Simulated scan of single mutants.
Amino acid sequence: MTEGTDRPAHVAARALAGSHFRYFDFLMAAFCVVLVLSNVVGAAKVATLGGLTFGAGILFFPISYVLGDVLTEVYGYARARRVIWAGFAAAIFAAVMCWVIVIMPPAAGWAGQEVYEAAFGQVWRIVGASVAAFWVGEFVNSYVLARMKIWTQGRMLWTRTIGSTVFGQGVDSLIFYPLAFLGVWSNEQVMTVMITNWLMKVGWEAALTPVTYVVVNWLKRREGVDIYDEGTDFTPFRTRV
């Protein structure tokens, strides 16, 4: 399914339903790992560097959006949707696992219970907010990118990756920070971190654009297709490709 030796073939996504790709599974695994660790390890800590206050998870969570962009651009909306649902399930499992471990009675003489409660005691609220924000934000991100690819006829990838991130991360931040931290942080701190993190996420996406170009072009050549979501059903409420 290639045009010549280097240029991948332009293929409608629906024509490849059920097809297997060599690198898709690896990207799905990477997406789920980044998402879970960002939620569990990085979301609750507030850091200040150079006068900017932000959630520490911002350093790594945007990687999931970059991976989401790559998945949609290379494999199409339907396969990106499948990955989003996989990430959703992984985040729920992580929350349940943390909750069970925290509430289990500690053994006599074991002094780590307070540390565990401090580290993971807010996981339910954080993960609940994060899952809701992630689910909506990732689907907005993927939808905008897929539509823009058709509108731009596959040109100017940077407009799609940055444009979709502006909308997707904007929705994500608007949902996550109020749900997770109102009443825990001051209203001013919630607003400051929400706006700062949104700008930083978009900035990260822009900074990583050269990397995104390299990865996308390499994957398209290796997979031998350039998928366009022509005729795709964009409902988020399914996992079948």
Rank of each mutant, 00 (worst) to 15 (best):
T2L: 15
T2F: 15
G4T: 01
A9Y: 11
V11A: 04
A12C: 03
R14A: 08
R14S: 06
A15H: 10
A17F: 04
H20Y: 00
H20P: 02
F21G: 08
F24D: 05
F24M: 07
D25H: 13
D25Y: 08
D25N: 12
D25S: 14
F26A: 11
A29I: 15
C32V: 07
L35Q: 02
L35H: 01
V36P: 01
V40L: 13
V40K: 06
A43R: 07
A44N: 05
A47F: 03
A47L: 05
T48L: 10
G50K: 08
L59I: 12
L67P: 00
V70I: 14
V70P: 00
L71K: 04
Y75V: 12
G76T: 12
A78Q: 11
A78P: 10
I84M: 10
I84H: 03
I84T: 03
W85T: 09
A86K: 05
A89C: 03
I92C: 15
I92Y: 15
A94I: 02
A94L: 04
V96I: 12
C98W: 10
C98A: 14
W99R: 09
I101Y: 01
I103Q: 15
P105K: 08
G109R: 02
A111V: 01
Q113F: 11
Q113M: 13
Q113Y: 11
A118G: 06
W124F: 08
R125V: 15
A129C: 06
S130N: 15
V136G: 04
G137D: 02
E138K: 12
V140Q: 00
V140G: 00
S142N: 05
Y143V: 15
A146W: 11
I150N: 01
Q153F: 07
R155K: 10
R155Q: 06
M156R: 07
T159K: 00
T159S: 06
T161G: 00
G163N: 07
S173F: 08
I175H: 02
F176I: 14
P178A: 01
L179T: 15
F181V: 12
L182Q: 14
E188P: 02
T192S: 10
L199S: 06
M200Q: 05
K201Y: 05
A207E: 05
T212H: 00
Y213M: 13
V215A: 01
N217F: 07
L219E: 07
R222M: 05
E223K: 03
E223W: 05
G224R: 14
Y228P: 12
Y228C: 10
D229I: 09
F234H: 12
R240Q: 14
